[in-house]
Design a protein around this nucleic acid. Sequence first.
DNA 1: CTGTAATCTTTATGA
DNA 2: TCATAAAGATTACAG
Lengths: 247, 247
Amino acid sequence: MSQNKILHVIIDHRENKLKTILDKKKDTITYESKQLDVADIVITNDVAIERKEGFDFVSSIMDNRLFDQLLRLKETYDYPILILEGLNDEVFENTGMKISSIYGALSFISYKLGISVIPTRNIEDTAIVIERIANREQGGKDGMPILSRKAPKEMSKKERRSFIIEGLEDIGPKKAKTLIEKYKTPYQVFKAIRHTEILYTRTGNPKSIQGPLEDLTGFGWKFVEKNQKILFGKKKKSPQKKINDKY
Amino acid sequence: MSQNKILHVIIDHRENKLKTILDKKKDTITYESKQLDVADIVITNDVAIERKEGFDFVSSIMDNRLFDQLLRLKETYDYPILILEGLNDEVFENTGMKISSIYGALSFISYKLGISVIPTRNIEDTAIVIERIANREQGGKDGMPILSRKAPKEMSKKERRSFIIEGLEDIGPKKAKTLIEKYKTPYQVFKAIRHTEILYTRTGNPKSIQGPLEDLTGFGWKFVEKNQKILFGKKKKSPQKKINDKY
DNA sequence: CTGTAATCTTTATGA
DNA sequence: TCATAAAGATTACAG
């Protein structure tokens, strides 16, 4: 089920270590090497990454180089990302910078400048992050279908209606969305389920459905049976309608 | 640069270690301890922090707890911050979770959810970050830290029927249980809501309800109005029934 | 979050 | 037409 699609990113030509690592992931992600002026890695037109190794991060704070770079990044891309690589004890202790100053800058970048900070342990992890982000942006499965079961706080009406529908059996975000888009309100959905009949074969096996839901794909007799039982307490209809059918 | 003004934050009453550390910084920052439902530390009405220790971070990804918390944080505050504390090798290696999954979640939170992630090495560093942020936010204005708190809600997979009902507005497990016990099936509940009328005063203001739900306590016109809108798309009835009432 | 297993629907095929 | 098999899609669950 994983992405069969091959991801593609652009990497600054000086990032040799990173390219070496990505070469080992050829099957899932490819790259082209260019001279980039405002970022180190470009995922899409909207998403780009600046990568900073721990020591360089700190020293670039001191000479104001970092903020220039990040501001340009922010101006150029809608989703600017800073990967903070290996910001560990060694870095904190071996630079002349005060710890509180480092965190001050980091806080500023993250929540005031609005740059997405992602910490990684090393460059291998950085490669993983790049692959994950590329997969989300290029893997086609973005959007927002991941709105399943969260607390019923402040949702939009549509979200809330889907949320109600998701309480049914054998239904997830996808089918819930389908139903709400066709029937608008939960009540209409329930009514549709109520008025859907299960068709049986002559020998008494369930075959298909008939009624409101038969136009939609993805809803069969099993769905109808289970949820009629839950919603209305309907019993499984005993298939004995063949009495005057034969002779 | 540092103000002499004393900073003030609100800290969840369970954060005992953090409070101990902040006690040592009494000269620059004070706090009050409250029961907070949506954040761990509140800086201002706009800025609040969720603090997650490494191991808890990972395990809260798995059970979807983290995303609920962060979504609520984002809905409640304009500047939601996640302090990621001590996400080190030990955490990465001692959880059954795949590294790519951890980074996938982290990336999602940071650049897709728009939550500001700030990594720290330990809780002492976390205290530093809190102090820096408080200083930036409060370092010039008088404090305004009062904040309403939102109800936390944990959806346990109880009875399926109550679960469905809980998707409604202004309803929790208790009211859901009441309704299911009286009406047995969700469909009957919805029908009851449908057939409940809102009574208006002569001046057109909603007064009370009439119909199936009027026997139960805890269900008023507001409940009926909101949920009729969600369930059936009913518009607020314009109270013009007084036409032949006068003459 | 990610990946895999388990279910269900639908299409295809043979009796 | 019915019954079974295979394929495609979605949901449920574990790590």
